[in-house]
Amino acid sequence: MDAFAEEFLNWEVMVRYFPDIVSGLWVTMYLALMVIVTGLILGLLLAVIRAFQIRPINLLIITFVDIFRSLPPLVIIILFYFSIPMFGLHWSGFICSWIALSLVLASFVEEIYWAGITSVHRGQWEAARSTGLNFFETLINVVLPQVIRMTIPPLTNRTIVIAKNTALASVVAVEEMLTVAQTSLAYAANSSPLTLAALGYLLMFLPLVILSRFIETRFAWKR
């Protein structure tokens, strides 16, 4: 037990590397936030476009979504990082990770929204259309508000899963929390920075988990 405390809960090491871990925390938080916002908006956009049922476009969306849901996010990040320069672009590891994870999140989120859209009762569409609302007005005012309420649980779940994948950005040299923790660990020859990082992740994602629970109950309505 003492050995464990010495290796993982070394106070002196923790204090020494605390500022580094905090700077990594900010990067992780920033990356996660960017991925969440981009992924959720892009996913919604794709689902809305898909609702118009234009066959060739839907085929594109489905292909994109299926590929990005099948590939491990780590593979996508590495692939982006090493292939993008071939196209004359100079994206940092941060940008590669941001775009890769956003696309992965968007793919899952699109499927969730889409499932939500198809599960809204046809009568809702008919009632709105019968009063003269057009397709888009019905989608925006009647269908999507119901979809978003309905999909909050799977949406927050998936968002948290993908946001945690920001740790994968450590493989493309992004100075996020896990990278910093690993570097610190090597320098200190002690695992306590990792404990700090774990606490950092808890600090970041536990409120998100609790918030999602709150939103769920706040927006739920009895059927």
């Binding site: 009762h121 009568g123 259309r129 019968s130 009063t131 309505w221």
Partner: peptide
């Protein structure tokens, strides 16, 4: 046209939100 033709459904179809 539909603005001028009202419709009432068997299952009401009120917007629950």
């Amino acid at each position: 046209i539909r603005q001028h033709i009202g419709m009432v459904f068997q299952s009401f179809n009120l917007y629950p939100h």
